[in-house]
Design a protein around this nucleic acid. Sequence first.
DNA 1: TTTCCTTGGGAACGCCGATGCGCATGGGAA
DNA 2: TTCCCATGCGCATCGGCGTTCCCAAGGAAA
Lengths: 164, 164
Amino acid sequence: MEIGYPCNMDRIDAAILKSLAADARAPVSAVAAQVGLSQSACTRRIQALEASGHVQGYGARLGHRRLGFRITALVDITLGTQVEEDLARFEAAVAQIDGVVECALVSGGQDYRLKILARDLDDYERLHREHLGRLPGVVTINSSFVLRAVPTRSEAEALFGGGR
Amino acid sequence: MEIGYPCNMDRIDAAILKSLAADARAPVSAVAAQVGLSQSACTRRIQALEASGHVQGYGARLGHRRLGFRITALVDITLGTQVEEDLARFEAAVAQIDGVVECALVSGGQDYRLKILARDLDDYERLHREHLGRLPGVVTINSSFVLRAVPTRSEAEALFGGGR
DNA sequence: TTTCCTTGGGAACGCCGATGCGCATGGGAA
DNA sequence: TTCCCATGCGCATCGGCGTTCCCAAGGAAA
């Protein structure tokens, strides 16, 4: 085990994770070539990474715009209570709303931050009126709209460093 | 072409996207069985979805916690300028920072919202001091930390509806 | 009706992925 | 040092998967 990598990981595992994060449907042989391993060794390491929870699954990156969803809203919601039961009730209600793709309880006041996808402003207005406005315990709702998504480092690069 | 779905898509395409979003490494045969198609027809539709940009790629879902990243920060940054060149300079600098996995210019004041991953609070403090604090044109930085990620509908469910 | 176009199903071939085996390397104990 | 065991890689194999043909069925337009 080398230092600088968490949990029994070395630079080869990191490279495998980067590769899979970049293209999860790439053949194992391609990943193996990229990281300098044989197919079999690479397969075994991938299986180990899946079993250990370092890889929790694989997903498709969908083109929201192309699918007709042009609005991404970042919504701050403040609750008038900090009782755990009220939070749970709020969270259960949030989980039912189509369009909410992320929701997090954050520090600094008892509030939540959501990310919401909608087709257009009308669609978002409907969502706001029919669902957000009816969430239990809400005091304030503050919506911001994404004007431009800035390209950043990928998740894997963030986790393992861009270089190295 | 049926109505209610964008851009030459029907319910089978939606089901394929849902399936791929849930498990991108699932064999095509499994996807085909799930949506009621033969392998060949399913392969063709997947290729078409990729070519049309509805699917932009495939990625791995990484276990941040397991990888040693226990801090997720949501950071609001306000700039003292709205000149496009300054924004571009800011964005270029942001793109260089390891740990920043999302960045968006949002409406309501000239500010950005970032999502940042860090190993722990010390690591975040270092990031804040060495990188965030040195970003050009910044007036205010406001950090919130994710206390709890609330499980929500998946992206595909948000886009195509939970039921149906 | 005829023709064209779209789309699905079937089969073949090539490739991919999982597993077992042998071997090399490295650390620990006598 | 020498032996031993554990770890991890590479090779070979085989079952299965994916891609790509070809053909058939259904709908639209002339």
